[in-house]
Design a protein around this nucleic acid. Structure first.
Lengths: 225, 225
DNA sequence: CCAAAAGTGTTCCGTCTACACCCATGG
DNA sequence: CCATGGGTGTAGACGGAACACTTTTGG
């Protein structure tokens, strides 16, 4: 079993946040250029070191809040990355977290202050260290889970049209979906509620706005698209 | 982005191995009693600290080899666990790895030397720290992946009968499977090869032995049970 | 001869897929 | 009046689930 602490070496642990957003019917990733060595100037995920008095989740939440001003963001651990030389400076193990945010909730001024950009996931540049691998793993995770967990709503405003929702699925899965089949399946899910409201922004005719009823889902947490 | 190292604190990082085996048609977990403080005497997973000159995977492999004498064990990361007080002694972040081994390959003398036991996953005791959560997460992971990845063979000898294979699925999924439907599906998978050999140990009539053809799978890595 | 496990097909039902046209409105 | 996106149903294919009896042989 575990042996005494002092005989062993300690390492730095960081969290890296893989922040996805949805805009122009594309899945986007929030990245910026590193402001410090090693890797100054390279494209990178946003991250930070884990402090002694915070859990991994707390650290990821702190970094995300610092970054977006938002609290209670949907977040899931992607995994720990621990190759010896993954950080060119020192031994740093990093735990990657995937976050989904609604771009509209995110103050764009804050984005610019941090020097960050939304980049289409189909046009990602080479990122610092192993960050591309982290992103790839996060996308695979989303694809596996999107049909069995209500993830997609985190990328949309509280009120959304079915076409928007469909575009989220298409962006994550990377393939087109038949509109009629998609809507048929949605109708069977009772916690995706149709409201009386009509969205007139995206079409002339107007589209019904829907809402994800969190309470109803919490009472009966089963999801299968 | 990441800031300079020295301003930040370091932590201990350990790996914990969730070792599954299959025996008596049950899924079993390898656990032992802790030989040191904190938590001396409690049931626990087997683990060890990550050294400065090894990756997380290397550390997990080292611990597994130390434990079983086996090399090239099937292994997958379950996740990083980082609650502040998860280790009662010091701040230790642990990365859990799930391993699948064939009990027959494992020298039972070595097991006893380490004071370890195979315990039915339906009869797990309370484990040290957050180890029960790790195990639960590993089982959920297996259940999700067993139908899309060729995991099950790692729990069996090279040659196995279809009934044995079916029992592995039943043990992991926790539900009974129809024999005829199961065999129908297996027949469609061409890298599960029927051999000429007959197993006479488990039945009077004798059952055909099958083999997982790794090369054939590597050439065409698609799996759907 | 019998207990115990191996092996084998068919039918039914529900689910997924493919597919095309009318509607409402702003400009 | 027309371009744009919203909204709707059906038929055929396919895959999954239910289901029971015969075979072999060691003891």
């Amino acid at each position: 079993m575990t042996q005494y602490y002092s005989e062993h070496s300690q390492v730095w642990v960081s969290v890296d946040c893989i922040v996805f957003g949805f805009e122009d019917n594309k899945l986007k990733l929030l990245i910026g250029r590193r402001h410090m060595d090693p890797g100054r100037g390279e494209w990178s995920l946003y991250g930070g070191f884990v402090k002694n008095d915070e859990s991994l989740e707390d650290a990821a939440n702190r970094v995300l809040q610092d970054l977006t001003g938002l609290n209670k963001i949907y977040m899931k651990q992607v995994g720990a990355f621990g190759a010896i030389d993954r950080d060119p400076g020192e031994r740093v193990i990093s735990v990657a977290y995937c976050a989904l945010i609604n771009v509209k909730d995110y103050d764009d001024k804050l984005r610019k202050e941090h020097g960050l950009q939304w980049v289409d996931i189909d046009e990602l540049p080479k990122l610092y260290s192993d960050h591309n691998i982290m992103v790839q793993k996060a996308i695979t995770m989303l694809q596996r889970r999107i049909n069995t967990e209500p993830l997609s709503f985190n990328l949309l405003p509280d009120l959304f049209t079915l076409t928007q929702l469909q575009h989220v699925y298409e962006a994550i899965l990377g393939e087109e979906i038949d509109k009629r089949n998609f809507r048929k399946r949605i109708k069977q899910i009772d916690f995706i509620e149709k409201t009386e409201l009509i969205d007139k922004l995206t079409s002339k005719r107007g589209a019904a706005l829907y809402r994800f009823n969190k309470k109803m889902y919490a009472d009966y947490p089963s999801f299968k698209l």
